[in-house]
């Protein structure tokens, strides 16, 4: 799905959508297990989720939100800017990571987002980022 949206990442980094308000916000989650292939190298014998994949989870949640906001047409999203990210604590196998992403401002074709990644009540990461959203309508209204 993400390939069709123009976004290059081979792995989906959230498991389920918990809450979604079109054009506004989304909440998703991902369970972290020791079997994730990337943990083999990050780091051998010491699995810690790479911070950039936490960021990727927020970006993918944002793209899903954009895709759900448009009902039809051809959509391509690309990461344009990362304004600010703070990784606040390491994330380990066994954690349940919850992503909350809100549209901060929409200045078509650029959408600005604000996101948090939480484990329980604890903030694991915060981010501000912008996507370039290219949408073309196809088909007819009847």
């Amino acid at each position: 799905m993400f390939n069709n949206l123009g976004h290059p990442f081979p792995v989906l980094l959230f498991d389920e959508v918990i809450d979604l308000v079109r054009g506004e916000r989304i909440k998703t989650f991902k369970l972290i297990t020791a079997n994730e292939f990337y943990l083999a190298g990050h780091f051998p014998g010491n699995p810690i989720v790479p911070g950039v994949l936490t960021l990727e989870g927020m970006i993918q949640s944002a793209i899903f939100l954009v895709a759900e906001t448009f009902s039809r047409g051809k959509l391509e999203c690309s990461l344009q800017k990362v304004g600010r990210v703070r990784f606040k604590r390491p994330i380990y196998p066994g954690d349940r990571l919850e992503f909350s992403v809100q549209v901060d401002k929409r200045e078509d074709p650029n959408w600005h987002f604000r996101g948090q990644a939480q484990i329980g009540q604890e903030n694991a990461a915060e981010a501000q980022f912008s996507l370039h959203v290219d949408f073309r309508e196809v088909g007819f209204e009847i």
């Binding site: 810690i48 344009q80 800017k81 990362v82 304004g83 600010r84 990210v85 990784f87």
Partner: peptide
Amino acid sequence: GLFAGVTDFQFYRS
């Protein structure tokens, strides 16, 4: 060493 953050990072092309 751990990645702690990113500030004003712009992507121009892939």
